[in-house]
């Protein structure tokens, strides 16, 4: 291997947890060297990416056998459905309010927004068909378009308060970024071959999410909802998702699926109602303390065994 390749392999191996790297690093490097002997640069890059990706999954606890990876994989049908359903709802709402943008500046302005909605809807269809690689790729496109849209909106010359505008737009675009991260975090081998149950969950999430999102007009009526309810809408799904440390997947899966939307939609309102992000620190601190306590209790007691309440 050339010096550059050796450096690249060492960098990829550095992503692995130290103990695993000490035990298996040499073996992985040997297999990499044998596999890429005589291969072109593109094949080597793909092999390196794959080597590093598994290390990153191990480091972040997102392998198919870890609780985090299993949680993301089990939540994937709900997440894909929720994103697709909310995208369809937003597209319909946008069309009814503004119609289809026509040419020039208007079209350019709406391009990232419509790209994120279209990609999210197609991602849900791909997930429904069990095409998870395609679903993840489209979710990634959706997230990328959302980021472009957020930056675009917040950095317009006429904007005087970029953070306010960013957070205001985040309540619309944020869920798609966070849902995409959950889908991308799900290990491929842990994702289910969709049965009627997974398809039913996906379609139910797709139908329910826009109904919940728009029925009470959560987006525009932030001043009608007390901040403690807003806080609870974030804290409850977060604690539900953290129940995964006890192996309670039946609780954790809906928590994780709901959290991206509840977090995004309430962040701006909480920030605005409190009059500044720093005033949210006590609540955030309490949430972190509760989360850490839950994790520590979970670790002390160990994960739930066969008797634990699990979806799968």
């Amino acid at each position: 291997m050339s010096d550059a390749t050796v450096f690249a392999v060492r960098t990829a191996l550095a992503l692995y947890p130290g103990r695993y790297r000490r035990e298996r690093g040499d073996e992985l490097a040997v297999v990499f060297a044998d596999t890429t002997a005589g291969a072109g640069p593109m094949a080597k890059i793909q092999e390196l990416f794959d080597l590093g990706a598994y290390g990153l999954r191990m480091r972040t606890g997102l392998t198919s056998t870890s609780a985090g990876g299993r949680l993301a994989a089990l939540a994937a049908p709900l997440v894909a459905g929720a994103a697709g359903g909310l995208a369809a709802g937003q597209a319909l709402l946008g069309y009814l309010e503004s119609g289809v943008p026509h040419g020039g500046w208007g079209l350019l302005h709406f391009l990232p927004y419509w790209a994120l909605l279209g990609a999210a809807m197609l991602s849900a269809v791909a997930a429904l068909l069990g095409r998870w690689t395609m679903a993840k790729a489209l979710a990634g496109v959706s997230a990328l378009a959302a980021v472009v849209e957020l930056v675009w909106v917040a950095t317009r010359p006429e904007v005087t308060q970029p953070l306010w505008v960013f957070l205001e737009s985040f309540q619309w675009d944020g869920p798609f970024v966070l849902w995409a991260l959950v889908l991308l975090a799900a290990p491929k081998e842990g994702l289910p071959v969709p049965s009627w149950r997974e398809r039913g969950l996906l379609l139910a999430a797709a139908a329910l999410t826009p109904v919940v999102a728009f029925a009470d007009n959560v987006y525009t009526s932030w001043y009608h909802l007390d901040r403690q309810w807003r806080a609870l809408m974030i804290v409850v799904p977060l604690l539900m998702a953290l129940a995964v440390v006890r192996g309670w997947y039946l609780v954790a899966v809906p928590g994780l699926a709901a959290l991206p939307w509840t977090f995004s939609v309430n962040l701006h309102a909480l920030w605005q109602q409190e009059g500044g992000a720093w005033k949210l620190l006590p609540m955030a601190g309490l949430t972190v303390v509760a989360a850490v306590a839950l994790v520590l209790v979970g670790r002390r007691r160990g994960p739930a065994g066969p008797g634990g309440r699990q979806l799968a």
Binding site: L28, V31, E47, D50, L51, G52, Y54, G55, S64
Partner: peptide, 10 residues
């Protein structure tokens, strides 16, 4: 690929 193989082996 190497990473995928070792993921499956683990």
């Amino acid at each position: 690929r190497t990473g995928t193989l070792y993921g499956a082996l683990d």
